[in-house]
């Protein structure tokens, strides 16, 4: 009896491991297919890129007016040039953020196709993670290229400035890669929460709104009230936008660089665990109907 059980556990482990390897390979494949697929929509990217540029120009105008004419100009925390770069890079990164649940996954949740997905010999969480991350990254490339390109071509005071240093640029890129994982992980947590809900998108949109507001995409975090700055640095959504951009404009002390990246990755890991946990709970209660 004891021996049999031991063998069973060992077999279980090998099977689990091979399932994991297959899952990982399939997920990488899915990621490639979906991201290449979404790369096709160049006209759509041009169209949505125009929104980023328009938005950036409004924001830059607003902050320029405040920096030049406001009663307490000395209360500004970054320089205007840093702020302009902050806006351009922020607008570039926004398409990476989970501001809505992936269309394809939401359609599956609403239509009950989750049942079909469960029949696949794949880990549902990583399967969907790969798909939603790929959908976002595919749309991101073109739009980012347009936003950055136009930002660099703008005349003097509106131009996206150079990075503070080579090290700053490298840290910015590393941090953006972490942003990508963080966004995907939070998006999956929201998707998992949405799994069991049949009556609407209210709670999930609110979850995503909190992320958007605290990312610095609405108002650059350095301009938030001073007493909130400590909290704003450690909360997860600074990793969406604020932290990478701070590397670029040189608003993070070099001594804090490693801790900052670790913070981003730590939150990512936490969101992955939470997402898997919620999803497991939701799937336990899932009812498959029809035939």
């Amino acid at each position: 009896m004891g021996k049999g059980k031991g063998m069973g556990v060992a077999m279980d482990r090998t099977r689990k491991f091979s399932l994991f390897v297959c899952s990982a390979r399939a997920c990488i494949g899915l990621f490639r297919i979906r991201s290449i697929e979404s790369l096709q929509y160049r006209a759509a990217a041009l169209s949505s890129g125009s929104i980023s540029v328009f938005w950036a120009l409004i924001e830059i105008t607003v902050y320029t007016v405040f920096y030049r004419y406001a009663a307490h100009r000395e209360a500004a925390t970054l320089t205007l040039a840093q702020m302009v770069s902050y806006i351009w890079l922020g607008q570039t990164l926004v398409p990476l953020h989970p501001l809505s649940i992936d269309d394809e996954l939401l359609a599956k949740i609403n239509s009950g196709d989750v049942g079909v997905e469960l029949c696949r010999p794949l880990d549902l969480y990583f399967h969907w993670f790969a798909k939603s991350a790929a959908g976002r990254v595919g749309r991101f490339w073109w739009r980012a290229l347009i936003t950055l390109g136009i930002g660099l071509l703008m005349p003097g005071p509106l131009r996206l400035g150079a990075p503070v240093s080579a090290a700053g640029l490298i840290m910015f890129l590393v941090s953006v890669a972490s942003t990508f994982l963080l966004s995907a992980a939070y998006g999956m947590l929201v998707t998992a929460v949405r799994l069991g809900i049949t009556w609407g998108d209210g709670p999930t949109y609110m979850m995503m709104l909190v992320g958007g507001v605290l990312s610095g995409g609405y108002l650059p975090l350095p301009l938030w009230p001073d007493f909130m700055q400590g909290f704003l640095y450690v909360q997860p959504f600074a990793g969406y936008l604020d932290l990478p951009v701070r590397f670029y404009v040189g608003a993070i002390p070099p001594g804090r660089a490693a801790a900052t990246i670790a913070l981003q990755l730590g939150w990512t890991l936490l969101f992955v665990c939470a997402g898997r946990l919620v999803m497991r709970g939701r799937l336990r209660g899932v009812i498959i109907q029809g035939g």
């Binding site: 607003v62 007016v65 405040f66 009663a71 500004a76 609110m206 507001v213 108002l219 301009l223 009230p225």
Partner: peptide, 20 residues
């Protein structure tokens, strides 16, 4: 909440930097 969040930036920046 979206509407409140939309106006929040304007409110906060006026609070920090004063009137124009």
């Amino acid at each position: 909440l979206v509407c409140v969040a939309d106006f929040l930036p304007s409110f906060l920046i006026f609070a920090r930097m004063g009137d124009i």
